[in-house]
Structure formats: structure tokens, C-alpha cells
Design a protein around this nucleic acid. Structure first.
Lengths: 238, 238
DNA sequence: ACCTGAACACCGTTCAAGT
DNA sequence: ACCTGAACACCGTTCAAGT
């Protein structure tokens, strides 16, 4: 839904002969349209292509105009991260702790990786924003609903989120660092590990050279959630 | 040791009247001296102050000279992250899995946070470098030594590292986002949470508004290591 | 209220020319 | 082998002036 591009928006491509004031019923710049244009730039050319000038150009507008709606480039990137995270559709808790936490983690991953070029922004900048509160609240509801005391619930929330974010960051960098699936790359990495001078790396090279995104995510999340469930039961006398 | 600044290094401050070729027995630019100069800039003014021009200026040299030793700005930042991580002093495993993993995590944290302004570089860029192999190998030695099969050891390594990195990133952003310790800030955050519209956030506000770096780190690492130890025992019939 | 012109003070990087 | 001059093609951001 946050992806929707209303037809009322101006053309995304730059139009020539632009100068002076808005040409009739044009543009109507807004914070939202700016953020959406930024997302289009990121999806198409990566986050390094984002600039006040490039985003403005894609809207057929001068770069300085953006400052009327956004707090500089840094504010623009924050707004983008919040926009993406704001589209997170959280599942309603069912009462089954394990299942509920899995569903939340899965929803978060889907959302964060939906725009792969923007994912690192979401994972590293969201930490203070209001948008980040909804997933936090949902996890806490699940933990509290299972009888977890408030202090312990906050601790478990934090370690769960840390594992999730760390795992997604790795998934992201694994995707860009080496072609995850290609066999030649796997063979090359395996060989490099065998030559690394660390015997233990040679020993585990076949596993370490491989990275199955789906399997790694499932393993990490299951691991963390199992541990959380154990803690919750321990902290809950009943 | 990587912090050492040999006296043979050129003055860190820019010297005037610099032009033409090196003035006698000066500079002697090298990859290492460039990286060390970069670290000084980061420590003093933050990572955003790093530039080919600013680093070169601090060495009394032209920016373009750096390209003879480093692969552009991006390569420079990679080199810096590797340099810092390369200074990691890993403890020798004792055979006590829990104690050994704790010691590794602690050493990693000390190293990564020793240069707080550069920490995010180390945590987000180290993932493919050779420097990152030493801690990986040490963790694997501990797990293998405890009888953990190769495949499981790699999985546990990855989830452990993800939790560690996620936790350190949070610690970092908690430190900059709000003054961690200050009481006025805590009170303000607590109030904001109570007004957030999420009842569960109001309920846990006193805990969620607080962030004790040391306690959070200890909790997260102990949590993850306990879970790892449980897995290792389960995967090890003896 | 919102947009632009002119302007400021910067960037990273190339390439040929120097030594 | 390594450094610089000149140059290119950019940046983010301000502020006053326009409508």
C-alpha cells in the first residue's frame, strides 16, 4: 500500500525547459511524493545514487525545493527508512508464542528485504523512529501474554531484535559480497578457506563457503525463539 | 599495538607551502600511514569528516597521492575497518565453552568500541575481509572442541555473530540517539512511551526507556551463549 | 507558502606531466 | 615508483528574491 503510486503524481521523468515557477497544474511537491521518488531512485540505482539533486530531477523540480519538506539529505534517508518500515503488516498474535514470534520475524524480513537496495537503511536507521514502535509493541504483547515479567520481556525483546537485525544484515552482505548460489564462487571460497592457514576453517570449509539465505534465516530465528520460549517458561512459575 | 604512532611518521598537522615534490626527507607515504591518519581523523571528527582531501591534508600531501596506495575512498574505509579488526587480541581457548565464548565476545566488543566513531564501519564492513577470519576460526575451534559437528558449528557461529553484531549496533545507536544515562532523558522517553497509544509500551515503559550498556551486553551474550551450549550438548551424544 | 537564481564551499577521481 | 597540476563533473546547503 505504501508502494502505491497515485496517478495524481507528476511524471517521474525529468521534463525539459523547467524554470521559474511550477508550470500550471504541475508538481505539487509534498513530503510523501518526495519520499516515494527517493524510493524509486534507490530501487533503480541504489542508495548511493540518492541525492538532493537526483531526487529533485526525477520530480522535475529544483533540488533546493526539497528543503521545504524534508530536513536535508539525512532527514530524507531517515524518512525513507521510516516509510518502508511503516508499511510493515504485523500479524495479530494468536497466543502461540513460538508461532507468533516467527510470524513477526518473517513479516519484518519480508518488509525489510522488499527493497533490497534500501534494506540497510531500514536495518541501521530505524532504531529510534516512531515507526519502529509497532513491531516492538507486538513482540512485547506476545511475551507479556505468555506471562513474562516486564523487565525480562524488554531484555528478550532486545536480544531477539538484535539477532534478527544481525541476521538480516549478514543475509544482505552475503548477497552482495559473493553470488550466493553460484557453484564456481562456492568452490573458490572453499579453496580459499582451505588455504587460510586456520585448520578449523579447512575442516568446515564446505559449510562456511555456502550461504542459503532461507535456511540461514530459519535456523537463526528458530534458534533465538526456542531460547526465548525456554526463558519465558523459566520466568513463569505457572 | 595497531594504535602505536611511530615517531618516524610525518607530522599529523598540515604544513604550509607544500607543492612540487616531497620536500627532502619528508612524508614517505604508505598504505599504513594513510590508514592511521584516517583513524586519527575519525577519532577526532567522526567518520563523516573522512575524505580523500581531509586525510591527505592531515598528512601534508595532495589528495590524489592517496590513490597510489588505496583503492579510492571506499577502499580506504574498508582498509580502516580491517585495520581496527586486525588489532583484535583473541584469548586462547581453555576448553570451557561458556567461558571461552564469553571471552571472545568481550574481546570483540572491546576492540570494536575502542574507536566509537569507527565502530559502525567495523560492524558493517568487516563481513568479508580476511581480518574477520581470525575470530571466526576461534569460535569454530571452541565449538568443534566441544564435539559440535561441522554443519551445526557453522550455524551456531553465524547466529552467535549475528546476535553480537546486532547487540553492538544497538549499543552504538543507543549511545548517540539519547544520552544513555541521563535521568531527564529517561523520564522524557518514559513519558513518550506512556502516551504512545500502545498499552503494552506504557506497561513496560520504565524498562524500555532505560539502556544500561554493560548490563544489556552481558544479558544478550549470556543468553546466546547459554542457548549455544544447550545445542552443543544436544548435538553431542557423549 | 513554496519555489528558484545565484552563489558558496566543498566533493571523488582521471590523466598526463613531472621527478 | 610516486607525486602533483589542471581539470572534470559533481555535491549539500544558504539566503534573498520572486510569485
Amino acid at each position: 500500500m505504501t508502494e502505491a503510486r497515485p496517478d495524481a503524481l507528476p511524471d517521474a521523468l525529468p521534463r525539459p525547459n523547467r524554470r521559474g515557477r511550477p508550470p500550471k497544474g504541475a508538481a505539487q511537491l509534498s513530503r510523501e511524493s518526495i519520499v516515494e521518488a527517493t524510493l524509486r531512485v534507490v530501487d533503480a540505482e541504489g542508495v548511493s545514487a540518492v541525492g538532493m539533486r537526483s531526487v529533485a530531477r526525477s520530480l522535475g523540480v529544483d533540488a533546493k525545493s526539497l528543503y521545504n519538506h524534508v530536513e536535508g539529505k539525512d532527514g530524507l534517508l531517515d524518512a525513507l527508512a521510516e516509510h518502508i518500515l511503516g508499511g510493515l503488516a504485523l500479524p495479530e498474535p494468536t497466543g502461540d508464542v513460538r508461532r507468533d514470534l516467527h510470524a513477526i520475524a518473517r513479516a519484518f524480513r519480508d518488509r525489510a528485504l522488499r527493497h533490497p537496495e534500501a534494506a540497510s537503511l531500514v536495518l541501521t536507521r530505524q532504531l529510534a523512529s516512531f515507526e519502529g514502535l509497532a513491531p516492538v509493541a507486538t513482540v512485547l504483547r506476545v511475551l507479556r501474554g505468555a506471562g513474562c515479567p516486564t523487565g525480562e520481556a524488554v531484555h528478550l525483546l532486545r536480544v531477539l531484535l538484535a539477532t534478527l537485525i544481525g541476521t538480516l544484515l549478514r543475509e544482505l552482505s552475503a548477497g552482495t559480497a559473493f553470488g550466493v548460489g553460484d557453484n564456481a564462487g562456492i568452490a573458490a571460497r572453499q579453496e580459499a578457506l582451505e588455504r587460510s592457514g586456520f585448520p578449523v576453517l579447512a575442516e568446515v570449509a564446505p559449510h562456511l563457503a555456502r550461504f542459503d539465505r532461507e535456511a540461514e534465516f530459519t535456523y537463526a530465528v528458530s534458534f533465538a525463539i526456542d531460547a526465548v520460549v525456554t526463558r519465558v517458561q523459566a520466568s513463569n512459575p505457572r
